[in-house]
Amino acid sequence: MRKKGRRIVEALELPKEVVFNLPIIQALGAEDVSITNYKSLMEIGTERVRINTADGQVVFTGKKLILKHVTSESITVSGDIDSIEFVR
């Protein structure tokens, strides 16, 4: 069902982030990374931040991580970000 749905969406060129509720991740260098369309916060740490999305978990690792802006729509992670990882 999921596969079929994906094919229809791709054929019709529908925005995937809307149909599948996929997260949009925007990075401003390695300083500010904002993630829109997330589900929930799972871990808040100085070296690791885990965010749950419809597409699995997004894990930020780095040093002195801080969540600069947090709303129900989006989160901005900043600090010395080393990696952004997708865990499914």
Binding site: L41, I44, L65, I66, L67, V70, T71, S72
Partner: peptide
């Protein structure tokens, strides 16, 4: 944090 975010609250500079 997730609970308060559901109330449509804006928070900033969240860190451990």
């Amino acid at each position: 944090i997730n609970l308060i975010l559901h109330k449509n609250i804006y928070i900033w500079n969240l860190y451990e």
